[in-house]
Design a protein around this nucleic acid. Sequence first.
DNA 1: TACTTTTGTAAGTGATTACTCACTATAATG
DNA 2: CATTATAGTGAGTAATCACTTACAAAAGTA
Lengths: 173, 173
Amino acid sequence: MTEKQQNILNAALKLFATEGVTSTSTSKIAKSAGVSEGLIFRHFTNKEGLLQAILENGREKSDEYFNSVMKVKDPKERLLMALHLPFVIPSDEYDFWRLIYTLKWQRGPMEHEGMDLFRNSLRQAFEELNYANPTAEAQLIEAIIDGVTTEVLLKDIYPKPLLDCILEKYKLK
Amino acid sequence: MTEKQQNILNAALKLFATEGVTSTSTSKIAKSAGVSEGLIFRHFTNKEGLLQAILENGREKSDEYFNSVMKVKDPKERLLMALHLPFVIPSDEYDFWRLIYTLKWQRGPMEHEGMDLFRNSLRQAFEELNYANPTAEAQLIEAIIDGVTTEVLLKDIYPKPLLDCILEKYKLK
DNA sequence: TACTTTTGTAAGTGATTACTCACTATAATG
DNA sequence: CATTATAGTGAGTAATCACTTACAAAAGTA
């Protein structure tokens, strides 16, 4: 991976996240990355290929988050870990997650293998805790993580009081 | 409002919601609405004007939802009403709400007057119920409505078990 | 009926789009 | 050193973009 190749990826991620994929032209990316427009196509075939490269690049990060939750054995601890997720995203990853959340509405939610394992591990935690409807509970906690992450990415909030409210609902405090 | 004018609004809403605003060309809208492309500009000045017309058109709907919650006096009943919101959206409004949720990431969340009143009425309900941090609680319930609405709009879920889980967390059952 | 306003169209406009091509500079390899 | 593969450029391409303009049909109004 050359330096210019990295510049392209960085510039494209920032532009895709802030202005949207279709509103970002390849010429704008090239200008922002300080390379010729042709180089984008040499390295990434086309605009879609560039987007996919960004997505693959970030998938490793997201898998780490999911794994850090799944490896926790104690069910209560695992839920605690899951509910912390929105608050442990480092701000230099915000652009990537904004991109993910934007793409959801045009291309559907990301549904790779790791995501399924994550969902199952949550459901299993609720089963072990004898919740009445573990599947629905897993769906809800996913929705909460989703909604809270949206708040974190779009507004600037005070994490602590919000997290306290969440944990109280699940009696994890 | 002519029939063709309505056709344009309907076609544009559907295309904007499913493919995104910037990926939808005015010629595509015209073709889908069965009118000449020029008519779009006669009636709505430009593409942005068309989007604004759609948004104003839908604001009445959203205000009705918020008002139906705010007019409830009893705080528990009001929270109950608010948490029902994601499940009372009729499916013929899905396109509009998908559009709203998409735009959030490019143009920021919609922040009109009615939204502020809604937020305050939720905070006040938590105050009356003597919650420790009403502001954070209002933020959380907003995030939950947001996340659950996302699930409703993007996946097909069973509303009842999910709603049950939510109400149990707030001891509203 | 005569006149004005509104609604609608078809054929344009220049600018921008994603992408290609011919070519050069650099680096790796035998 | 000679050869070959890779990295990089800049000037193209046709297609599409949002939008305009000139003009006709329709509808309202006196």
